[in-house]
Amino acid sequence: MSKSIIEIQDLHKQFGNVEVLKGIDLVVKESEKVVILGPSGSGKSTLLRCINYLEYPTQGSVKINGNAFEDKNRKNQEKHIALLRTEVGMVFQKFNLFHHLTALGNVMAALVTIKGLSKVEAKQIAEFNLEKVGLLEKAKNYPSQLSGGQQQRVAIARALAMDPKVMLFDESTSALDPELVGEVLRVIRGLAEDGMTMVLVTHEMKFAKDVADRIVFMDNGVIVEDSPPEVFFNNPSTERAKQFIMQEDY
């Protein structure tokens, strides 16, 4: 039996008076690909952002590779959270490349600042990962000189370079022109084939169906269904999921 990379227990998240997540339990095993689906406002992105503590949960616990983010007895909480985040790669909807650094600089930055590698080592790792996403020849370009698809691939390389245990994709193709979606999905698919553990929030239904081991369907802050894609798409057990699949014309 493979080990659990992410363990989420009774996760609640409240923004003001609005409870966005209402008790989520979710375990993601090593090299599993989990796609989170659901209507907008169902809490998918919030759940994803709680996994690396970009949002602090109101209640409940998140463990990465057996390490809990929060522990009341721990003294330097911020440092610990930062350290644990290095094991979770995240790719955003809006790429969020560092505008003042080149593609290479973006991938190197955290290797030098956070992992403490020398520039030479960091450069090697960065080039290796840029090569992986097919953008080594763009290493010297600034984000403003790259297309959306290229920027997102650099963002993936940047996350990969930290050698994370799991990758989170937060609607990583939603901000792209339709003709650029393919190149990013190809890179993500490649990662999936390499056995990377992944949690994806996406609207690309066909892609979800192809890549996912499990579809987690959320509605109104809770997980409504958690089943393999064949089951989810062909024979969903809840009415809500049926409606959702009907609406999404994939």
Binding site: L54, A82, T86, M90, F92, A110, I114, A159
Partner: peptide, 10 residues
């Protein structure tokens, strides 16, 4: 957020 996600402290 991108920096925090990579493990930077604030």
């Amino acid at each position: 957020e991108a920096a925090l996600a990579l493990g930077y402290t604030k």
